[in-house]
């Protein structure tokens, strides 16, 4: 649970879900897409790397150092299970709300 709390704060969840669809991306593109500062993104990535959800590699592209972030199998698996959990939770909440709403409508229709 502690691991969940650390990995699934909104910014980290966004990073993981984005990587889930792209598999790997450059640090700069990720920063641009998520609108995070480089320091902020670095700290989130370090945390995710420590949890072994992402892999960070550095390459030289045209003599410039480039950082590439990829999602690991564990990371992809965690995104799937976490979003499935979200789905159940939110789906149940919506259903409950709709039941409450329907019963309220029924009560108001009764003269």
């Amino acid at each position: 649970m502690e691991e969940d709390r650390e990995a699934f704060v909104p910014a980290r969840l966004s990073i993981l879900v984005y990587l889930y669809f792209t598999q790997s991306t450059k640090f700069t593109s990720l920063q641009k897409k998520l609108g995070l500062t480089s320091g902020n993104l670095s700290s989130h990535l370090r945390k995710l790397e420590a949890l072994r959800y992402v892999r960070i590699s550095k390459y030289f592209v045209e003599l410039k150092p480039t950082t590439v972030v990829s999602i690991t199998q564990e990371g992809a698996q965690r995104v799937q299970t976490q979003l499935a959990r979200m789905r159940e939770l939110v789906g149940a909440a919506i259903e409950e709300q709709e039941t409450v709403r329907a019963s309220a409508d029924n009560v108001s229709e009764v003269p």
């Binding site: 879900v17 984005y18 609108g35």
Partner: peptide
């Protein structure tokens, strides 16, 4: 690949929704 605004929105929406509905 992904409309990232939607993504950021979704993850923060999740906490909001849980607070609101649950």
């Amino acid at each position: 690949i992904f409309p990232i605004n939607m993504l950021c929105f979704c993850s923060s929406a999740y906490s909001l929704i849980c607070r609101r509905f649950i």
